[in-house]
């Protein structure tokens, strides 16, 4: 497996995640695009660990930490979204003014 091909694939996933995170109007879709960005970072970690650090595998361990952080984020995010939806009956990003009094 060529290293550059995997890096190009990861860069593609990262940029399309950034695009979806900025342009999506639905909060759940923004969470999905955040998962895409975290996955592109994980692909880079695992690939560099396989190529450069075959003995110590620090990249694999760090990608496990990233997966755990993503699990915490995916537990918090839908809880906040469902709380906002219960109060506002809407999950659009540009209409969330809950702090407005």
């Amino acid at each position: 497996m060529m290293l550059e091909h995997v890096l190009v694939l990861s860069a593609y996933l990262f940029s399309i995640g950034i695009y979806g995170l900025i342009t999506s109007r639905n909060m759940v879709r923004a969470l999905m695009c955040l998962e895409l960005i975290l996955n592109s970072v994980n692909i880079n970690f695992v690939t560099f660990s396989g190529f450069f650090d075959n003995r110590q595998l620090r990249g694999d361990i760090f990608s496990i930490f990233v997966i755990a952080i993503a699990a915490a984020e995916a537990a918090i995010g839908p809880a906040i979204v469902s709380s906002i939806y219960r109060n506002r009956k809407s999950t659009r990003i540009n209409q969330s003014n809950l702090l407005n009094k």
């Binding site: 998962e35 996955n39 993503a70 839908p78």
Partner: peptide
């Protein structure tokens, strides 16, 4: 974790 937990949570949030 991703396919089994996070994706199921996201599908649950969409269906909610």
């Amino acid at each position: 974790i991703y396919v089994g937990a996070i994706n199921v949570l996201i599908i649950f949030a969409v269906m909610f």
